[in-house]
Write a protein that binds this DNA or RNA. Structure first.
Length: 223
DNA sequence: GATTGATCATGC
DNA sequence: GCATGATCAATC
């Protein structure tokens, strides 16, 4: 019988839940929740994240809200190698490309999302099937002063370029912790942006991503 | 090996 | 199309 995990009442409960899941394989977690394990992630890239949402009692669904609304905590799974280092960058949110003039860092979706994040590392060698992957030591993170400063300056630099219509000049190479890359169904999906003359143009949707440099630091830092 | 651009599924 | 959840894969 599928077990639906109730939402933890507080931070301590959530952390306890994570510790209970530690060292379990995803197949074990899936089984206890009555979930099927896909043979691979190629047609199902979000499976790991959604399994963990279920296992930790996150507020389900596709709402534009933190996973644990009452706690203000965002859940993110992140694939790591045998050394516990992140393999991939982490998607944060879509970058606004239009009407961006009035945004400030502290009012930005990026800032809000990163205020409090529960990182759940998943030991995921490339050769491992989804079911073989193992849950690691979760970290409840809030940006340190230094981290927040760098994130803010990265964000401001990138948003300035969007405002100035330099969308096409933004490369994924910019930003120390935060960078921008395409985020769409494919290269043919388009949204509205502005060019250097302020004209509306069709362009690729972009998203903010966290570099592994930052996430590696988070996962290895003192809890 | 890290980086950067492209892509998969699902719901509304 | 955009929000949720991310990883794939070619190239540097």
């Amino acid at each position: 019988m599928p077990i639906s995990t109730p939402a933890p009442a507080n931070e301590a409960g959530l952390i306890q839940l994570c510790q209970d899941l530690q060292e379990m394989t995803l197949a074990q977690v899936a089984e206890s929740l009555g979930q099927a394990v896909p043979p691979n992630l190629m047609g199902n890239k979000g499976w790991v994240g959604q399994l963990l949402e279920l296992a930790l009692g996150a507020t389900a669904g596709n709402e534009a809200a933190p996973d644990f609304q009452h706690l203000g905590i965002e859940l993110k799974t992140i694939p790591v190698n045998s050394k516990g280092q992140p393999i991939e960058t982490t998607y944060v949110t879509t970058a606004p490309l239009l009407n961006v003039g009035h945004f400030t860092w502290h009012a930005s979706p990026v800032y809000k999302k990163l205020q409090c994040v529960l990182w759940v590392p998943i030991y995921s060698e490339k050769s491992m099937t989804p079911g073989e992957r193992v849950i690691g030591n979760s970290v409840l993170w809030r940006p340190s002063f230094d981290e927040a400063e760098i994130l803010q300056s990265d964000w401001e630099e990138l948003m300035d370029m969007i405002c100035l219509g330099q969308l096409e000049k933004i490369s994924a190479g910019q930003g120390e912790y935060l960078h921008i890359r395409p985020k769409g169904a494919n290269k043919h999906s388009l949204t509205w942006g502005i060019d250097a003359q302020g004209n509306k143009i069709k362009t690729l949707p972009r998203g903010f991503y966290l570099r592994t440099q930052l996430t590696r630091q988070i996962l290895q830092g003192v809890i």
